[in-house]
Write a protein that binds this DNA or RNA. Structure first.
Length: 554
RNA sequence: UGGGGAGUCGCCAAGUGGUAAGGCAACGGGUUUUGAUCCCGUCAUUCGUAGGUUCGAUCCCUACCUCCUCAGCCA
């Protein structure tokens, strides 16, 4: 993994390199600016890795700033979860957490300044009227009848807005720019509205709240952000970002750059739709392991470094993209491969009775084939074993390397075993196997013949019962929200979760929540963060192993 | 039919006037008591289309096509 820390070139790094080379900046300051109105998802993870990652690579700083200007939708629960997610991903913001609400007083003063310059006015139009006056994409808007109020009147009215003299929504403060602009964002955008809502930090101190476009640029300037990075949909807000900073007396004028947001195959990255899944109980919550939220991915067993590697692999650009889930899975597997201890577990047991069990011994086995430092554990043997039902076939397909009637197979870390008889129930299903082992094959190959297959197994006597949750993609199609006419929930995968009662080897008995393992030949699994306890083992399947056999069969 | 963006391999993505990086996936081979890992090899005469400038263009110019995005007192 020599590439893991090698930065990948992208247009933002190119800009930063140029800014540093020209002396425009001597160091950089970025920021991650979430609104605390929901949980962070994989798209935010990309943004976090970008903003914090740049700060790390360029030895600059990155702030965490909450865009808390819409009190009706925001909560501390979300703010706390967001901080936890950023830290879990391995990043630390510069100084204290910042809040846009910290700047409310300054924001207000700058609004007064705009009014004094004749660049903002109080408007009494109703929302419906304002929409009519705004024009359309192809027709210019027209001026509000209140647009030419005197500076004194505007000052008075704005002061009274703050003082709470007017009802919610009765008036707004608007920037006076150009109602005929071809950019609708410049048609006198609202910058303050009246809303008597309890704010998570300022409580009831304010009944007017600044809008995003007005707040964000000034917040960036107050924090001396050098590169303000956001997603593509804010591209046409940039003229407004610049207009505000050009007309207000802040010393600093950060530059905004936009990159394309992440789309991931077989999932969705819309806060609204994610919320819908939670509200409609399509998933168990924000941290359901099928959710592309940071909390969900974490609970599933995705690792912070794996997610960072994923972000590195997908890069940053301005083009629309829909990333293959294989890139995520590849990054997670690569991260887990060199550190997850190998253990054996049986998901779908088929009982095996060993006829010549007498004298069979346990054997010590490494927890990792290439990392002896991870230690060893005993692999016990017994008269009765469990093997994976899928590992036996009475009528094997071509290329079969596993167990079949009369055939031999290596039991992982143990003996070579032959199947002598398949016991069936009345409907003809194989319910048990009678097998025998070659006592001379413990830790060595049999003489005179080759056994190509290896299957995992558990000694019934020693195995521990466990709940195993098998997760699959949340949706049945790669782009569930691509079709505007079909609701994305129609594409929910009914088989995205299968809970089975399986068996695991005793060495995992005392494992803590969030412990990663590779169940040999099955995949990477993680003890559940919430439900796993010693004595009540719960494993989540993080991702399967690459499987060229199943692929070949398909 | 207004404004703002984007079109480079199946999926991401560098590059930029000098003759197409890399990753993922895929495919072929080797090692292997995980059909895993690991190792080796293959994988764009071509950069949305059509013209033009040039000794030379994915990079410059012109026209066109396709897709995304904007009409919240959300962010």
């Amino acid at each position: 993994m020599s590439t893991a820390n090698t930065p990948v070139s992208n247009f933002i790094r190119t800009i930063i390199d140029a800014d540093l080379a020209s002396g425009k900046h001597s160091s950089i300051v970025t920021r991650f600016p979430p609104e605390p109105n929901g949980y962070l998802h994989v798209g935010h993870a990309k943004s976090i890795c970008l903003n914090f990652g740049l700060a790390v690579d360029y030895q600059g700083k990155c702030n965490l700033r909450f865009d808390d200007t819409n009190p009706e939708k925001e909560s501390f629960e979300y703010a706390q979860s967001i901080q936890e997610d950023v830290r879990w991903l391995g990043f630390q913001w510069d100084g204290e957490v910042r809040w846009a609400s910290d700047y409310f007083e300054e924001l207000y003063a700058f609004a007064v300044e705009l009014i004094q310059k004749g660049l903002a006015y109080v408007d009494d139009l109703t929302p419906e009227e304002m929409r009519e006056y705004r024009g359309t994409l192809t027709e210019p808007g027209k001026n509000s009848p209140y647009r030419d109020r005197s500076i004194d009147e505007n000052l008075d009215l704005f002061g009274r807005m703050r003082a709470g003299e007017f009802a919610d929504g009765a008036r707004v403060l608007r920037a006076k720019i150009d109602m005929a602009s071809s950019n609708i964002n410049m048609r006198d955008p609202v910058i303050y509205r009246i809303r008597r809502a309890h704010h998570i930090r300022t409580g009831d101190a304010w009944c007017i709240y600044p809008m995003y476009d007005y707040t964000h640029c000034i917040s960036d300037a107050l924090e001396a952000i050098t590169h303000s990075i956001c997603t593509l949909e804010f591209e046409d807000h940039r003229p407004l970002y610049d207009w505000v900073l050009d007309n207000v007396s802040v010393a600093c004028h950060p530059r905004q750059y936009e990159f394309s947001r992440l789309e991931l195959h077989y999932t969705i990255t819309s806060k609204r739709k994610l919320l819908q899944l939670v509200n409609e109980k399509k998933v168990s919550g924000w941290d359901d392991p099928r959710m592309p939220t940071i909390q969900g991915m974490r609970r599933r067993g995705y690792t912070a470094s794996g997610l960072r590697e994923f972000a590195r692999r997908i890069g940053v650009s301005k083009s629309e993209n829909s990333v293959d889930m294989a890139i995520m899975e590849g990054a997670i597997r690569e991260d887990l491969e060199p550190r997850a201890p190998r253990v054996m577990a049986i998901i779908n047991p088929l009982k095996v009775t060993i006829s010549n069990f007498e004298g069979a011994e346990a054997r010590e086995a490494d927890f990792h084939p290439n990392l002896p430092e991870l230690g060893k554990r005993a692999v016990p043997f017994g008269r009765e074993l469990y093997i994976e039902a899928d590992d036996f076939a009475e009528v094997p397909p071509a290329g079969w390397k596993r167990l079949t009637l009369g055939g031999e197979v290596r039991l992982r870390h143990s003996y070579v075993m032959r199947c002598d008889e398949a016991v069936k129930d009345s409907s003809g299903n194989v319910v048990e196997l009678k097998c025998s082992i070659d006592h001379a094959t413990l830790g060595k190959n049999p003489e005179g013949r080759k056994v190509k297959g290896v299957i995992h197994f558990l000694s019934c006597e020693h195995a521990l019962p466990a709940e195993i949750r098998l997760y699959d993609r949340l949706f049945t199609v790669a782009r569930p929200d691509a079709d505007r006419d079909v609701d994305f929930s129609n594409y929910l995968n009914p088989d995205s979760l299968k809970v089975v009662q399986g068996w695991v080897e005793a060495s995992v008995k005392e494992s803590a929540p969030e412990t990663h393992y590779q169940f040999e030949r099955l995949g990477y699994f993680c003890t559940d963060r919430r439900d796993h306890k010693p004595g009540s083992l719960v494993f989540n399947r993080t991702v399967t192993l690459k499987d060229s056999w199943t692929r070949e069969q398909a």
